[in-house]
Computed example of a mutant assay.
Amino acid sequence: MRRKVIAGNWKMNMTPSQAVKLVTELRPNVNNPDVDVVFCVPSIDIVPVVEAVKGSNIHIGAENVYYQEKGAFTGELSPEMLVDAGVSHVIIGHSERRMYFNESNTVLNLKMHKVLEHGIIPILCCGETLEQREKGITLDFIKEQIVEAYVGVTKEQVLHTIVAYEPIWAIGTGKVATTAQAQEVCGFIRTVFEELYDKETADQIRILYGGSVNASNAAELFAQPDIDGGLVGGASLKPDFADIVNYNK
Results as ranks from 00 to 15, higher is better:
215 A>V: 05
72 A>G: 06
33 P>I: 13
243 D>E: 04
202 A>F: 11
235 A>E: 14
15 T>G: 04
183 Q>I: 08
106 T>S: 06
177 A>V: 12
224 Q>D: 01
150 Y>E: 06
154 T>W: 14
70 K>N: 15
138 T>F: 08
225 P>V: 04
137 I>S: 11
27 R>T: 08
101 F>Y: 13
138 T>D: 06
98 R>E: 07
13 N>L: 06
193 F>M: 05
27 R>E: 13
26 L>T: 05
160 H>W: 11
106 T>E: 08
87 V>S: 10
107 V>N: 01
172 G>R: 00
203 D>Q: 10
122 P>R: 03
171 I>A: 08
71 G>A: 13
166 E>K: 05
96 E>M: 08
27 R>W: 11
200 E>H: 15
211 G>I: 07
118 H>R: 11
109 N>L: 05
104 S>D: 01
224 Q>H: 03
208 L>H: 00
179 T>Q: 15
24 T>M: 15
16 P>L: 13
189 I>G: 07
131 E>D: 05
236 S>H: 15
125 C>Q: 04
219 A>Y: 10
45 D>P: 01
80 E>V: 03
87 V>G: 10
84 D>W: 12
237 L>V: 14
124 L>I: 10
104 S>V: 00
162 I>S: 09
44 I>N: 09
3 R>E: 14
243 D>V: 03
13 N>W: 01
89 H>P: 06
44 I>M: 10
82 L>Y: 11
193 F>Y: 05
91 I>W: 06
179 T>G: 15
216 S>P: 13
150 Y>D: 02
179 T>E: 15
134 E>Q: 03
9 N>L: 08
69 E>C: 09
88 S>G: 08
185 V>F: 01
81 M>N: 07
77 L>R: 10
86 G>A: 08
185 V>W: 01
107 V>M: 05
75 G>P: 08
32 N>V: 07
68 Q>S: 04
81 M>W: 06
37 V>S: 01
1 M>D: 03
118 H>E: 09
239 P>A: 11
35 V>C: 13
113 H>T: 00
206 R>T: 15
23 V>P: 05
52 A>G: 13
147 V>F: 01
19 A>D: 11
241 F>S: 11
207 I>E: 02
84 D>P: 09
16 P>D: 10
225 P>T: 06
